[in-house]
Design a protein around this nucleic acid. Sequence first.
DNA 1: GTCAATTTGACAATCATTCTCATCGCGGCT
DNA 2: AGCCGCGATGAGAATGATTGTCAAATTGAC
Lengths: 140, 140
Amino acid sequence: MNAAPPLPVPAQPAPRMTRQRAAVVEALDGLDDFRSAQQLHEELRTRGDSVGLATVYRTLQALAEAREVDVLRNDEGESLYRRCTRREHHHHLVCRVCGRTVEIDGPTVEAWAAKVGAAQGFSDIDHTVELWGTCADCRA
Amino acid sequence: MNAAPPLPVPAQPAPRMTRQRAAVVEALDGLDDFRSAQQLHEELRTRGDSVGLATVYRTLQALAEAREVDVLRNDEGESLYRRCTRREHHHHLVCRVCGRTVEIDGPTVEAWAAKVGAAQGFSDIDHTVELWGTCADCRA
DNA sequence: GTCAATTTGACAATCATTCTCATCGCGGCT
DNA sequence: AGCCGCGATGAGAATGATTGTCAAATTGAC
Ligand SMILES: [Zn+2]
Ligand SMILES: [Zn+2]
Ligand SMILES: [Zn+2]
Ligand SMILES: [Zn+2]
């Protein structure tokens, strides 16, 4: 049996390493909760690693597509990004007050979602699951 | 034991009944899947019950706050509205192709969400759960 | 180094949603 | 039925996040 053909699924050409991309990734690594593109842009400017706003948006999109960062939408519809610890599929529990984020593993929901979807005759089931709450430190 | 005090939680003054509000509700009743404010506005114009776009937005917001309609965000961030059958808390399974929607009851997730949140020391746990898939009629 | 292909960034353009404010009409009262 | 106060309406302007444009700057392979 020969080796598998070269690269059946190269998908994207692998992005170039630029100062800007490195700065965005570094900033994300330094933060611990979800941030918007605008906030990241500001953060970078403060650090002195200034990057154009459009570039911040493009970089975050690329990182998201490459599954390097997670994305979620706040209640105002803005996209928030975060570099998570685990790269596998997971969910989040976010403090609606301070933004503190906990990565959640949900074998229970995973199974539930697949089961319910199948029961209705749907295929390629995908799901959106996010948890919001007030963390211990933010109690009144 | 006396009757409970008059109205401890009147909240909102109850909106006035206007031709516009009635038209929006009627249109929603006639539809079966989630629609955006813009789509509703167009639908109304087609029906001849033309209503100003701003009014459509305001009415949908009010209906949503009154829990008369359900809201969810599509992947582009637009708000979609739907008049659901059950008024109690529930979730949805939406066909990503044709929009066909099924109301889902999820005692399993409800419990899971509360449990996970508490385990992390969070309180007032709230959750976002939506399922997406391809319905039987939309298979290739 | 050289050079083609990418990437960047200042700025314009989109586009859903919200705001403004003069006008309209619902509904409680007589 | 007529009166009236105030919420509701709508045309258009304003907002604000995100995307598009395109010339100039960089990257990475040879
Ligand atoms: Zn907190
Ligand atoms: Zn999951
Ligand atoms: Zn379908
Ligand atoms: Zn639920």
